[in-house]
Design a protein around this nucleic acid. Structure first.
Length: 380
RNA sequence: GUGGGUAUAGCGUAGUUGGUUAACGCGUCAGAUUGUGGUUCUGAAGACCGUCGGUUCGAGUCCGACUAUCCACC
């Protein structure tokens, strides 16, 4: 149940009520692909990091440990001891991004496991069964993420197929939700808009999938190499055709600046590997800009990563110490940086929500959109 | 003390019968990262080749002395 609490032009402040609790939007979902945030961050840490929703991955969990294992263990929530909402990706993107020798057919996708080369198949029904076993709060429809740039003819063909897959996904999940032995009988389904960078295809596809009256709508297939301005243009083109009373999710995005700009264009949900991946490579986000912790200028820096931040890392450790941990290849460096970045992202969303509540989102955007994308200490 | 070996970037090494701007790994520095294949990718800086002299049109390369260092022996 999604409630639109307030709007400021196209920007939206909302509340999404689920069986696993309330999600205040705009929200950033923290990516824990294999039921774990990379960088040794646990579910217990996530609570302290103000995480509202954790995202886990159908493809990865299906391959290892296997969705049946997680089903036997009582579902993902119990498996990783996380009681708040979980969104599971459908596996569509992983098949596109990392599976080898994939072959796309009407029934689904044949591919080989990236772990052992084993032949596998996932179609809409398989994706829904896996996600049902996982028992996530929100399941994503099985889609095809087309590479950019792509010929328009192929993109059209792919969109049509994704609509057919979406109908099958919806029917299968309805069937699974009605079973007595299902982990989460109220599992929700989000559909995914595709159409590459062709505005007319995007709009046509959006019109088709909104007919299915899903629990939410995602924009997929962006931030896959196209210029940022193209991404904004597509969001602006599709947004008017997205239901107002359902959450909107921009998949895989993005930088703090991308998120602010997308909120301004009417998006409610985000997820991205950037805060955790960058942190593991010693790049952290601060309220003064982006910072590369291994830079020599921090050798004797006694300050926390961000003096404005009150995350567990910034409350306890200096830049000098964390830099040393990275240089010494100590895993603790990655963990501290990941915790900081996730806290930063979750706090960014909190500040965006507060700004929307107080009717000053555009002021917030003017102040931070560029600043957060800049390099800290630039020009020194 | 005697005999032998080795001296090339912060460290470890390559460098052909002497022939243009001396190569590589690690480290250092910087940049990248967008629905995660967990030690990732890209780029840059850094060496008057131990010192002094000799041979030669030309020496990191050949010769001598010195210095440092390693090994063996007394």
């Amino acid at each position: 149940m999604f409630t639109l609490l307030k709007t400021e032009n196209t920007a939206r402040r909302g509340r999404f009520e689920t069986v696993h609790g309330v999600i205040e939007t705009p929200v950033f979902m923290n990516v824990g692909t294999s039921a774990a945030i990379k960088g040794a961050v646990s579910s217990l840490d996530l609570i302290e990091l103000k995480c509202q929703v954790e995202l886990c991955n159908t493809y990865h969990l299906h391959i290892r440990p296997g969705d049946k294992v997680i089903y036997e263990m009582g579902g993902l929530h119990r498996f990783m001891n996380w009681s708040r909402p979980i969104l599971t990706d459908s596996g569509g993107f992983q098949v596109f991004s990392l599976a080898k020798l994939r072959k796309i057919k009407e029934e689904g996708v044949y591919f080989r496991s990236h772990l052992d080369g084993k032949k596998l198949f996932i179609g809409p029904e398989e994706s829904m069964r896996i996600q049902s076993h996982l028992g996530s709060t929100i399941a994503m429809a099985f889609d095809e993420c087309v590479e950019n740039p792509a010929p328009k003819s192929y993109s059209k063909e792919s969109c049509d197929r994704t609509v057919r897959w979406l109908r099958r996904s919806k029917a299968e999940l309805a069937r699974l939700n009605s079973r007595e032995d299902t982990v989460n009988p109220r599992q929700l389904l989000f559909g995914i808009n595709q159409g590459c960078t062709f505005e007319d295809l995007r709009i046509e596809h959006m019109k088709q999938i909104r007919e299915l009256d899903l629990d939410g709508y995602a924009i997929g297939g962006l931030a896959v190499g196209e210029p940022t301005e193209e991404m904004y243009r597509i969001i602006e083109a599709v947004e008017p055709y997205m239901p107002k009373d359902k959450p909107r999710y921009l998949m895989g995005v993005g930088t703090p600046s991308n998120i602010i700009e997308a909120v301004a264009r009417g998006v409610d949900f985000f997820d991205c590997v950037m805060p955790s991946r960058n942190a593991r490579h010693a790049t952290v986000f601060t309220w003064s800009g982006i910072m590369h912790l291994t830079n020599q200028r921090y050798v004797l820096d006694e300050r926390p990563i961000d003096p404005e931040c009150d995350c567990p890392t910034c409350r306890s450790f200096t830049r000098s110490y964390i830099r040393h941990l990275f240089k010494a290849d100590e895993q603790l460096g990655g963990r501290l940086a990941v915790m900081h970045n996730l806290y930063f992202y979750n706090t960014l969303m909190e500040r965006i929500r507060n700004a929307l509540d107080e009717g000053r989102f555009y002021e917030f955007r003017a102040k931070y959109s560029e600043l957060l994308a800049s390099r800290i200490d630039a020009g020194r």
